[in-house]
Structure formats: C-alpha cells, structure tokens
C-alpha cells in the first residue's frame, strides 16, 4: 500500500487525471450553457465525434493545428444550429432529438473517415507546451505546467464560463430563459435567440472537446473515437449542478478515480480489473449521494418555449 501512495504515483495520478479531465471539461461546460438556457442536448457525443474528425482531418492534410481548431469550431456551429433548429424552433422532445444528433454525428464522422482517410494514421497535433518558469517548479511544474495547449484552455474555461454566466448580461439572459422563459420574454428577451446562442456555443465547446481528443490527447482518429465519453460529460453537468466549479470538481473526481484505477492495475494491486474500471462510475454516484445536491435545476429545463401557449 505504501507503494501506492508514494510521491511518484501521486504525481502520476494527478497528471493523468488532468489529461483525462480535459475533454470532459470542454464538453460539460458546453452542455452547461445549453442546459442553463433550458435545452438538454444528449447529442454531445455525436458533436464531439464530428469535431474530432474534422480537426484530425485538417491536421492530417495541412499540418496546422490552428486551422484544425477553426474547422472544429465551424462544424460545432453547424451541429449546434441543427440541434437548436430541431429543439428550439421545432420544439422537439429534447431527449430524443439529442439521440438523433448523436446517431448523425456518429455516422457522419465514421463515413467521412472511411471515404476521406480510410485507415488509422497518427498525426502531429498539439505539442506539450512548458510554461516558462512555472514548469521548472518541482512536482507542481511537472503536474500542471507541462501540458499541451488544449489542457490549459480547458482549465481556463472554468473561470471564464463562471464569469460569463454570472457577471455578463448575456449570462443573465441565458439563466433567465432557463428559469422562466415567459417572464424573460415579457421583459423583452428574445428567448429563441438566446437559446440558439447557448445551444450553439455549447456545441462549439463539444466539438472542441472532440478536437482536444483527436489532436492533443490521442493524436489520431478512429471510428467512434469517443466511445460514449459525451454521455459521461452530460452526466457530469448534473453532478456539477450546472455550475462551472461543480463541473470541474465532477470532472476531476471522475478522472482522478479513473487514473487511480489505472495505476492500481499497473502496480498489480489485487482487485479484478472489471471492478477497477467500475470505480469511477460508482464513486461519482456515491459522491453525489453523499453531498446530496441542494442545487435546483433550471426550472424550464427540457421544456420547449412557445410564446403562443403562454
């Protein structure tokens, strides 16, 4: 057991956890925007896949990661507008439109991969970027300041998202249309427009989550690369109670336990591997039960807004 808790292992676990958490943070923050405005988007995984493929393909063809980021954002906008159109304008049952979007994204990314690329190839994506001076600090520098750019961006996204949602007019509008769209509407807020914005912005982040996977963390694309990661990201939004900090806690908890179980396996701790793999899922539920969430969901979550009916 002392080996498990040695400094090297602890450092290893935290470094791993930070990497693993990165796509979850992007996708979950995006989903938080969408849900705060009242729209559940279950299609995150599909958006991630399309974003992951687009970014990967652009790097493969041009070698330029910035074009890749741009491509991922554009494709995120397209998927977001599609989701908004179906869920906001057409007031569709959101749980189901999300699953449709997931299928579309899964199929589209695999189809494009098949016809445009054909076989698995690795790419040179984002390289590790040592932050000057900070990276030289023992232990801490090793853990936090030797990552690739998308990892830093993910963590900077937390305060940025908090600031945007809590301190800006647009953030206020997003929260208002998620709490009481009728009231917001009577105050002159364009509910439809705000929801379009929140859903599409969320989709861009989901797409970037996919891109962070394919161009920074694994540096390749394969059919169904995300393997359901997007659904976990949606779950983490509930864990975090729609708050960026809560999402950070959830993503880090899930990823740390995941990194921990990998280390347990590497160190040959005697538990069945299946039980080890279960741990992050199990502990996420247990943790939420233990703290008993007092946070109320956006009141109009999952409810399409129809001006005529109110």
């Amino acid at each position: 057991m002392e080996q498990v808790l040695s400094q090297a292992v602890l450092v290893g676990i935290i470094t791993s956890a930070i990497r693993l958490a990165t796509p979850y943070i992007f996708a979950s923050i995006g989903e938080a925007f969408s849900q705060t405005s009242g729209v559940v988007n279950l299609g995150v995984d599909g958006i991630m896949l399309v974003g992951a493929f687009m970014a990967y393909y652009v790097v493969l063809k041009t070698g330029n990661v910035w074009f890749a980021v741009l491509a991922a954002m554009l494709v995120g906008i397209a998927m977001g507008l599609l989701m908004s159109f179906i869920s906001v304008s057409m007031r569709a049952e959101q749980g189901i439109s999300g699953i449709g979007l997931y299928m579309l994204g899964l199929g589209l990314s695999s189809l494009l991969f098949k016809v445009l690329v054909g076989s698995v190839q690795t790419i040179e994506g984002f390289k590790p970027l040592d932050i000057p001076f900070l990276a030289d600090i023992p232990v801490i520098g090793e853990i936090f300041f030797k990552n690739s750019l998308p990892v830093y961006v993910a963590f900077l996204l937390i305060p940025a998202a908090w600031w945007f949602l809590e301190k800006t007019t647009w953030g206020l509008k997003i929260r208002a249309v998620g709490q009481n769209p009728a009231a917001a509407d009577s105050l002159g807020v364009d509910v439809i427009k705000v929801r379009y914005f929140a859903v599409t912005f969320g989709a861009v982040l989901a797409s970037l989550a996919g891109a962070s996977l394919s161009t920074a963390l694994v540096n390749l694309f394969q059919e169904n690369l995300t393997a359901g990661l997007g659904f976990i990201a949606v779950a983490l939004v509930y864990f975090g109670g729609w708050k960026p900090v809560g999402i950070l806690v959830g993503a880090l908890l899930f990823s740390t336990v995941n990194a921990f179980q990998l280390w347990m396996q590497v160190l040959g701790v005697d538990i069945p591997s299946d039980v080890a793999v279960m741990l992050p899922y199990l502990l996420t539920i247990v943790a939420l039960v233990a703290v008993t969430s007092r946070i109320r969901p956006p009141a109009a979550l999952n409810k399409p807004f129809d001006r005529g009916e109110n």
């Binding site: 694994v218 690369l225 590497v266």
Partner: peptide
C-alpha cells in the same frame, strides 16, 4: 504489468493506460 480498460473501443482510456505504464 497489465491493465485492462474494460472496453474494446475506448481509445482515450487506452492511451492513458499506456501513458501510465
């Protein structure tokens, strides 16, 4: 040392398992 990810398709976790090794 052996790690099992519990999935035939989870590339992200497989990558992290390799990095852990």
């Amino acid at each position: 040392n052996k790690t099992w990810t519990g999935s035939f398709s989870d590339v992200a976790l497989m990558t992290e398992a390799a990095k852990t090794h």
